[in-house]
Simulated assay, not measured.
Amino acid sequence: MKKNNRNDLLLQEILTIVQTKKYRKGRESFVMLLHYFSDIPSIVNVLGILLEDNDLYGFAVKELNKLKFYRYTEKIKSLLENEKTGWIKRELKRNLQNAGCIYE
């Protein structure tokens, strides 16, 4: 994607939707778009914040994996301990493995 004002506006609208808690699980598909804005450094910070959101943390970890960003290991370890959903568990483990925290 080429960077232009339209992309900045689109990102701001996506972030507004993602941060609006009343949309609950409807925000998931918008989180899955964030890796398209990888040229904006603050995206990683947004995904780090989304690790605290019970509805979105699985999707945030998946986006972090797509961006090859593996720094929130302590939070991800704590999420993995309580996770029951298979695909989220796999994404959490993948992130930890790529971060160098061998986790089986």
Rank of each mutant, 00 (worst) to 15 (best):
K2C: 11
K2R: 14
K2E: 15
K3F: 06
K3E: 10
N4I: 15
N5C: 05
R6F: 12
D8V: 04
D8S: 14
D8H: 12
L9M: 14
L9F: 15
L9Q: 15
L11P: 04
L11Q: 00
L11R: 05
Q12G: 14
E13W: 15
I14L: 07
I14S: 07
I17Y: 08
I17W: 06
V18K: 14
Q19W: 09
K22Y: 11
K22Q: 09
R27F: 01
R27E: 01
R27G: 04
R27S: 01
E28W: 08
F30T: 13
V31M: 08
V31G: 06
M32T: 13
L34Y: 05
L34W: 07
L34A: 00
H35W: 10
H35V: 08
Y36D: 09
F37S: 07
F37M: 05
S38R: 11
S38L: 01
D39W: 07
D39N: 07
I40A: 07
I40S: 11
P41Y: 11
S42Y: 13
S42Q: 14
I43A: 01
I43F: 03
V44L: 08
V44C: 00
N45C: 08
N45W: 02
V46E: 15
V46W: 15
G48A: 03
I49N: 13
I49F: 14
L50F: 09
L51G: 04
L51E: 03
L51W: 11
E52F: 13
E52P: 06
E52C: 08
D53Y: 01
N54R: 14
L56K: 01
Y57H: 05
G58R: 01
F59A: 06
F59V: 10
F59P: 03
F59M: 07
A60K: 04
A60H: 04
K62S: 13
K62G: 09
K62A: 13
L64R: 00
N65M: 02
K66M: 08
K66N: 12
K68P: 03
K68T: 11
F69G: 03
Y70Q: 00
Y70R: 02
Y70T: 06
Y72Q: 04
Y72M: 02
Y72W: 11
T73S: 14
E74L: 09
K75F: 00
I76D: 05
S78T: 12
S78P: 09
L79H: 01
E81D: 11
E81R: 08
E81N: 02
E81K: 04
N82S: 12
N82W: 02
K84Y: 08
T85N: 12
T85E: 14
G86Y: 12
W87G: 03
W87C: 05
R90E: 15
L92D: 10
L92M: 05
K93T: 05
R94C: 07
N95T: 09
N95A: 00
L96R: 02
L96G: 03
L96N: 01
A99K: 02
G100Q: 03
C101M: 09
C101H: 10
C101N: 12
Y103D: 10
Y103I: 12
E104K: 10
